[in-house]
Design a protein around this nucleic acid. Structure first.
Lengths: 177, 177
DNA sequence: GATATCATGTAAAAGGTTACATGATTGG
DNA sequence: CCAATCATGTAACCTTTTACATGATATC
């Protein structure tokens, strides 16, 4: 529902191609939203039709041409309106928990293996986020202040990932017991 | 994507009506998945067509008739197969974080108000979950052991909500500063 | 020679939300 | 008398995923 607004917010920070937006979603600062490339390209088309964004074509040598999108004045107005509206709480839809809940129908080994797989992924994500955090702390005080709001979304990622890992370790102990 | 499996897992524990499943999703033990009643009724239809569940009609006096669904042998097999397959990690799609990220386009008061609204909701959820946890601890040791896996999903909720609230308080301090 | 990265899209299917629809009982 | 709870569903719409599609350069 809010992919549109996620794209607008990212484009408000700086003009970007669809491909680059995808990278932002998959990497650190886009921690708060997920999207596949197909969906991003579709939404860029829709946002363009609504004149909330515009693009210029950038030719590149040795690489495919790039469409660089930027937010329009109309887009900024739409974004500001949205920012004033109350936001629905994020939803937890975690299939791993379904598996744990029904874990008596499978083996403990299966559950432990699955948990270990997920722990590995979450540890990778966490260390990525911690690296970005480190970089942030090397910035000058004014810059830190400038980026304090995006930094908070990074902090959400870090706190969230740590909590996830705490739970997973607890879960492993309970299952093995 | 996994609403089907969430329903199967719940029905494996005990037969249930669509209405009752909805309640489970909205309350504690269904912490791990969200669904509206329309979607549940739709999926119950689909699962019935695939013969993974079946239902009996229960007449009630003073209340509408109830369709009580239970999982079939075929359904249990399908569920066991799914439990053996690797599960994708849960996704974070949190519109509040989009709002924080682009918060420089709006006022601090707006951000603080929004955070407070969300804090209230999360505190309510947390206290609900803590109540269920309390009940769990009053059970006999054998019963506790029997429910240890569903209990882990409850723990995930508690740990997740606490982490969320920790972050929100940090966020308020940063924004007010 | 294989894999990753860059860079874009269309189309069909599945999943999820919103709007509409009904109607009785119970509790404040 | 109003709101909540019980109990079920259809239809239209929007969002997301999966499958299909292309093709160059850079790195191991």
């Amino acid at each position: 529902m809010s992919l549109k607004h996620a794209i607008l917010v990212l484009l408000e920070t700086e003009p970007s191609s669809g491909y680059n937006l995808l990278k932002q979603f998959n990497e650190g600062l886009g921690y708060f939203w997920n999207a596949k490339h197909q969906q991003i390209y579709q939404q860029l088309k829709v946002l363009s039709e609504h004149r909330l964004i515009s693009h210029t074509l950038e030719e590149q040598t040795g690489k495919p041409d790039k469409k660089v999108y930027k937010i329009t004045d109309l887009g900024i107005e739409a974004l500001k309106d949205w920012l004033l509206s109350p936001i629905n709480p994020g939803k937890v839809n975690d299939a791993l928990l379904i598996k744990i809940y029904g874990g008596h129908l499978t083996s403990d080994e299966n559950l432990i293996e699955e948990l270990d797989r997920h722990i590995e992924m979450h540890e990778k994500t966490l260390s990525k986020l911690l690296n970005i955090e480190k970089t942030y702390h090397t910035l000058q005080t004014e810059k830190q202040d400038e980026y304090k709001l995006p930094f908070l979304t990074l902090r959400r990622g870090i706190i969230g990932e740590r909590a996830w890992l705490d739970w997973a370790n607890e879960a492993k102990l309970v299952i093995k017991k």
